[in-house]
């Protein structure tokens, strides 16, 4: 059994034009999807990231430089993250199944490397 990091990527513009009614309906679909994952016992971490762009830390001439991350103007931002358990990428993909997210963005799936060096 391995753990996989699931990053929900999206383009903020994709959801901004939805009507209030459509947005409320989407909550239902997301809740059903995530609820299904949780009920299956696959989710060990499930977090939504704040819609504020966060901060970017860089080094400039040896000093830390902090800048605001883009949000509304960004094209590809991470809105949430999960850690799910599965035996393989294929199984993780199958478990992530058919939620609504791919209609508005994409999912980055990365296996977490827990194996100690031999």
């Amino acid at each position: 059994m391995a753990e996989y990091l699931v990053l929900l990527h999206e383009d903020p513009a994709a959801t901004r034009t939805l009507s209030p009614t459509q947005m409320q309906a989407l909550i239902q679909r997301y809740t059903d999807w995530i609820g299904g994952l949780r009920t299956g016992g696959f989710v060990t971490v499930g977090k939504k990231l704040k819609d504020d762009g966060g901060r970017h830390l860089h080094s400039e001439k040896g000093k830390m430089v902090v800048s605001d991350g883009p949000y509304a103007e960004g094209k590809d931002i991470i809105s949430g993250l999960f850690v799910v358990t599965a035996d393989s990428y294929e199984q993780a993909q199958a478990r992530l199944g058919s939620g609504p997210h791919l209609e508005f963005g994409w999912i980055e799936l990365r296996e977490i490397d827990a194996a100690p060096c031999a």
């Binding site: 997301y30 995530i34 977090k47 949430g80």
Partner: peptide
């Protein structure tokens, strides 16, 4: 609109 979008994202993962 921003508030509704934010709610949509937030309540789906963190519960209503």
């Amino acid at each position: 609109q921003d508030a509704l979008v934010s709610a949509m994202r937030n309540w789906a993962i963190n519960a209503v």
